[in-house]
Amino acid sequence: MAHAIFFYIFSTIAIISAIMVTASKNTVHSVFFLILDFISISCLFIMIGAEFLGMIMLIVYVGAVAVLFLFVVMMLNVAQQKNQWFLSSQSSGHIPFGLIISIVIFFELIIVIGGWKYKPDLFYKVNSQLNENISNTHSLGQILYTDYIHVFQISGMILLVAMIGAIVLTFRQRDGVKKQSYIKQISRERSEGVQVVDVKTNKGVSLDD
């Protein structure tokens, strides 16, 4: 009973905030709604007993990815979106593409959910290998690091390549940037920094540098 109430509360918040992500005119508000969406989805994860996934969802998406989203949105200064949603001539060109993509995603979801409904053993086959006595994290680790170790490693490599690619794309050498070299600073001796000169009266002194 209580479980159902909480489920409906969290899923309602998730759906409403997902709609608000696209509907709100202020982009920063959209990101905040996205964060609310992530949080309520991680609550749903915890409710079905996948506590590890729920926490990882919070740490990775809310703690890191959404912060970067906010960062970009705030820095680009696109806080106020002036044109009307769907009505302006500029954005209406995107509507066909958007429709096609959403139809594709919709049918994919139907296939997935339909498969779950009509072929339940497809899903519970994987589940049956798990031991009920050990914790969520433990069982996830046991599958991930034994049966699927190669897939896991390859996905890690793909992420690494993507990271290096992003760094290579944005890295540029600029001229005239003064850099601080810690080793140079620390290894400086007194003899290099100070020069004692005998100044003669009325002659002055000339330093060559």
Partner: peptide, 25 residues
Amino acid sequence: DINVGILYLFAVSSLGVYGIIMGGW
């Protein structure tokens, strides 16, 4: 006394940045 206590602590402390970002913006 949850199974993923340390992850929960880590998650909540990583959420702490939002108060500051929201206030600043």
